[in-house]
Amino acid sequence: MNKFFTMLKTELKLSFRGMDMVIFALCMPVVVSVILGVIYGAKTAVPGVEYTFLEQSFGALSTIAICAGGVMGLPLLISDYHQKKILKRYKVTPTSPAFLLAVWLPASCIFRCSFFQGQPYLTK
């Protein structure tokens, strides 16, 4: 577990420093939410319903954020680490390169959770 948490801590730091996860998983959804809020405000999605356009769009926005960070992030990580021969370095250690990629999954989940934690404030 010490190995897992050490690598998780390092991968999280690298994700923040790399900025691509921060931009796609945090900034982009927030910016789009703000733009939708500015354009549509508290207007209802369609006449006669109680929910606003922003509330209706939140599910789609979340899906885009998850796919941009999650589905795009892992292939980018694999190709980046493969190109830099980082995965090759792990082949000559007792740990499999797959472990490094597996550590990335909870790291990206932490990014997802931090966005969802802010969701109530965005839709107000």
Partner: peptide, 15 residues
């Protein structure tokens, strides 16, 4: 029980 130093660098950016 084995250590390796490769000829080319292999580390993440910004570490």
């Amino acid at each position: 029980q084995v250590g390796v130093q490769f000829q080319e660098a292999n580390y993440p950016d910004k570490i």
